[in-house]
Amino acid sequence: MILIIAVLFSLFYLFQINKMTFALCESKEIPEDKQPKVYRTVNILITILILSFFVQVLVST
């Protein structure tokens, strides 16, 4: 049950982070050719954070 809630929370969290990354790109006027690199970096870092959270949840249960 906790794992299902964690997955749903993670999807929501990743979506919100992408919205904030878009706002960052707009406010800082990052060129279009550099935006995919920014998104990729942010998504990789957030994915690592989420995976470490899953490992912590699985180990603690």
Rank of each mutant, 00 (worst) to 15 (best):
42 V>S: 00
56 Q>N: 07
40 R>H: 10
12 F>G: 04
13 Y>T: 02
18 N>P: 03
41 T>N: 10
15 F>W: 09
13 Y>P: 00
39 Y>Q: 03
58 L>R: 10
60 S>C: 09
49 L>Y: 06
10 S>F: 01
47 T>L: 13
28 K>L: 15
26 E>P: 01
39 Y>M: 04
40 R>L: 12
54 F>S: 12
9 F>I: 05
5 I>A: 15
52 S>A: 05
9 F>V: 02
48 I>R: 02
61 T>R: 14
43 N>S: 15
44 I>Q: 05
49 L>E: 02
16 Q>I: 09
61 T>C: 08
51 L>H: 00
23 A>E: 15
25 C>N: 07
61 T>F: 09
19 K>D: 04
25 C>S: 02
26 E>L: 09
3 L>V: 12
28 K>P: 06
40 R>W: 09
49 L>C: 08
8 L>D: 01
10 S>K: 06
34 K>A: 05
29 E>I: 08
11 L>R: 03
48 I>S: 03
50 I>P: 00
46 I>F: 14
24 L>S: 12
23 A>W: 08
2 I>D: 15
35 Q>T: 07
52 S>K: 13
44 I>V: 14
12 F>K: 15
7 V>N: 10
2 I>F: 10
43 N>Q: 14
35 Q>Y: 06
38 V>Y: 01
8 L>R: 01
13 Y>G: 00
38 V>W: 00
24 L>V: 13
60 S>H: 11
43 N>E: 09
34 K>L: 13
27 S>H: 12
34 K>H: 05
22 F>Y: 10
1 M>N: 11
45 L>R: 15
56 Q>H: 07
6 A>I: 01
50 I>S: 01
37 K>Y: 09
54 F>V: 03
19 K>Y: 07
50 I>N: 00
32 E>W: 00
58 L>G: 07
31 P>E: 04
20 M>E: 12
36 P>L: 05
27 S>I: 10
7 V>K: 14
21 T>E: 08
54 F>L: 12
